[in-house]
């Protein structure tokens, strides 16, 4: 199978900040690549390079068989982009937005009209199609924006955090739409901050941080690396963390990680509620004052903790992505 997206050695500086620091990406035709990373990791910059919006300082990229730097216009006619912000014109109706995009893809007047109605129907926006989009809900705008990316039925779709800021219901609806597209053979590159989302949609996941790829593999491979569920214990006295780690050690399937700032210990475990019960017994026997204890599924934080030994730090370098306070689930 051919590669729909192939990028090698992408580098992009913003002043002293390296937004991309030698990123390689490959997406096979008809598959989904999830580009996972915290705010400021370089996800949006990568998408901007692949969609010809930004020229990299170094590196090469080919999208749908066309060199991004040599023939940007040919790339644009083969891709659909849906951004982090729903880039729809709020004064235009949903129909007018889509029809305009069709005209600008040079589909012709008639075909643009037909296609606009078709997509409104497909995205469950037919009833709202003739209303200005400023009356739309956030989920409706996102759907319209995604529909905009599909007007020309492009073989390659690039979706930059397509579900950020959506409520859970709209999120799963959008996932369904993306799945249907992939089933029809579309290649998708999507960026996300949610491990869960990459897990649900992506055939392959690339984790990036500070402009570098720090891991790649299938969701299962990554999870195996990160481990399954985790035991988290928060104590009132940070000094108690070391004894907690000693007490809990034997229950873990991996080493405990201590976070003094949050006064917490996190450790991969397996065995479900029994482990939690066991852990609480041990803590009580050890006379340790516990604020909170529980089991949880691995989050992006855990991926980062495991891969880099430190938590995500979206706060220090969000050069190309807005701050969203939803990194941690």
């Amino acid at each position: 199978m051919a590669d729909a997206i192939r990028a090698t050695g992408l580098v992009k500086h913003y002043g002293a900040v390296k937004a991309l620091d030698g990123v390689d990406l490959t997406v096979r035709e008809g598959t989904v690549l999830g580009l996972l990373g915290p705010n400021g990791a370089g996800k949006t910059t990568a998408v901007r390079v692949l969609t010809t919006l930004l020229r990299p300082d170094a590196g090469q990229a080919e999208v749908a068989g066309v060199d991004v730097l040599a023939d940007p216009r040919a790339v644009r006619s083969r891709i659909g982009l849906s951004g982090q912000y729903a880039a729809v014109d709020e004064y235009l109706t949903g129909y007018e937005n889509l029809e305009m995009i069709g005209r600008l893809y040079h589909l012709g007047r008639k075909h643009s009209r037909v296609r606009a109605r078709e997509l409104l129907e497909q995205f469950d926006l037919a009833d709202a199609g003739d209303r200005p989009t400023r009356t739309y809900s956030g989920g409706m705008r996102r759907r319209l924006d995604l529909a905009g990316a599909l007007v020309a039925d492009p073989p390659v779709l690039l979706l930059d955090e397509p579900t950020t800021g959506l409520d859970p219901r709209s999120r799963t609806d959008l996932w369904e739409v993306i799945r249907r597209l992939v089933a029809r053979g579309t290649t998708v590159l999507l960026t996300t901050q949610y491990l869960e989302e990459a897990d649900a949609l992506a055939d392959e996941i690339v984790v990036i941080d500070h402009g570098k790829v720090i891991a790649r593999g299938t969701a299962d491979q990554l999870k195996a690396q990160v481990g399954g569920e985790r035991l988290e214990v928060t104590v009132s006295d940070p000094g108690a963390l070391t004894p907690v780690a000693e007490l809990m050690g034997p229950l873990g399937v991996g080493p405990p990680v201590l976070d003094e700032h949050r006064r917490s210990m996190t450790m991969p475990v397996s065995g479900g509620v029994d482990v939690l019960r066991d852990a609480l017994d041990r803590l009580r026997a050890g006379g340790i004052k516990v604020d909170d204890a529980g089991l949880r599924r691995p989050t992006l934080d855990d991926v980062f903790l495991t891969l880099t030994g430190r938590p995500t730090d979206g706060s220090d370098s969000d050069i190309d992505e807005p701050v969203t306070a939803e990194v941690r689930s």
Partner: peptide, 17 residues
């Protein structure tokens, strides 16, 4: 600001249009 220009720039349209 609203990202509409990004949308336009990702389309195969004339850049002066």
């Amino acid at each position: 600001k609203k990202g509409i220009i990004d949308r336009f720039r990702s389309l195969p349209m004339s850049s002066s249009a």
